[in-house]
Design a protein around this nucleic acid. Structure first.
Lengths: 207, 207
DNA sequence: GTTTGTGAAACGATTCACAGCT
DNA sequence: AGCTGTGAATCGTTTCACAAAC
């Protein structure tokens, strides 16, 4: 398949898909690169370049067919299927994410929650029982996961990651403030919330 | 002050600061660019280049003095002061963030919570009373904010942003899945959680 | 006339490599 | 000898600009 597409390009493709879905809802049939660009904050050339990595979907003089392009973007982004996602950690952020509608809407189903806190194990969240992390191996053997969302404290994060990797999980969304080490065939995306605030304080301090 | 430092550079500076604080805790007095680099996943040249934007703090043949460099990074990142942060929206993610220790630890104090849901207004979260968003203007007039964390649904996000901007808020961390429009002197950092998962599904689909 | 698709140019970030301090 | 600081080289991304398609 396609190789060497920049992360920034992939992120923009996700945004284009959202805009296309809005246009779809409004019954618009075709859309120009300029129209897509103005909805995001980019340029028409950027939109065309991004799309051209994957083929040519547009009609010159006309623009892009909304339905077809949306469908093709779903395929490119791997959104034609649903994903089984496990939540590792049942703290505050885990709780919020389990209930977050945006995940299910986009095809990501949270199907299991794990924690090591006896006070939490056995509780129900959104219809799911919080399971003992000690049962991770036996549980995933029967019900494999496509992805894991890691919302543990920093210390256990690498250890749990190693177990997930051994169990065949190939994608991890990491909220623990650590740099996880994984093999080449496993993708990790780290979100560090305090760090985002620090980019804001940097901007405030340097004006 | 300094201008034109890439966002990626600022993010690495935040990471270096964390590593320096760990070294500080271990009583290490000086650290080389190579040591800092291996803790993050970067190169010694990158570390030196990043730091060189702001001056030269190292001693050739020796490395960087841990305490001094950490302090200088705090100054650069605007972390010598604490920030008054308002949480706009008292939903699931707002709840998690209000209780998230990482913010306070790094100097970001959540001092007010606003929502428009009568069922939530008046409740206490972490010692703070959820206030009616209708009172945003009167409240901020008396108790100004340095930053806002926006955790509303997509629809009201731009409207609330306009009000925050009018009230002098210069930095917004946005979790609503929309592209906010703000004047040049206001900084916005958007975190789109569903989009992060989509970069993972892209990676899984294209291997 | 409008808009795509795409090489070429411009820009920006990272890596190299080495002179200069300690 | 070890490590920084930094210009120069490299690599990657974005923007330009225009021929080709409709």
């Amino acid at each position: 398949m396609m190789r060497k597409v920049a992360d920034s390009t992939v992120r923009r493709l996700s945004l284009y898909l959202r805009f296309l879905e809005e246009f779809e809802g409004q019954g618009v049939a075709t859309v120009s690169s300029g129209a897509l660009a103005s909805r995001g904050s980019t340029t028409s050339a950027q939109v065309r370049k991004d799309l051209s990595f994957f083929g040519s979907f547009g009609k010159r003089g006309l623009g892009y067919p909304v339905l077809e392009l949306a469908d093709r973007l779903r395929e490119i982004l791997g959104l034609r299927q649903r994903y089984r996602v496990g939540m590792i950690g049942a703290g505050k952020i885990g709780s919020a994410l389990v209930q977050y509608r945006g995940f299910r809407q986009r095809g990501f189903d949270i199907v299991a929650i794990f924690d090591n806190d006896p006070a939490k194990i056995g509780r129900q969240w959104n219809g799911l029982t919080i399971q003992d992390i000690a049962l991770l191996e036996s549980e995933l053997a029967r019900h494999p996961l496509d992805m894991a969302v890691l919302v543990t404290p920093a210390e256990p994060a690498q250890g749990v990651t190693d177990r997930l990797v051994r169990l065949g999980v190939k994608a991890i969304l990491n909220f623990a403030p650590v740099q996880l080490v994984v093999p080449d065939d496993v993708v990790v995306k780290t979100v560090n919330l305090a760090l985002e605030l620090e980019t804001l304080s940097y901007a405030l301090a340097n004006r």
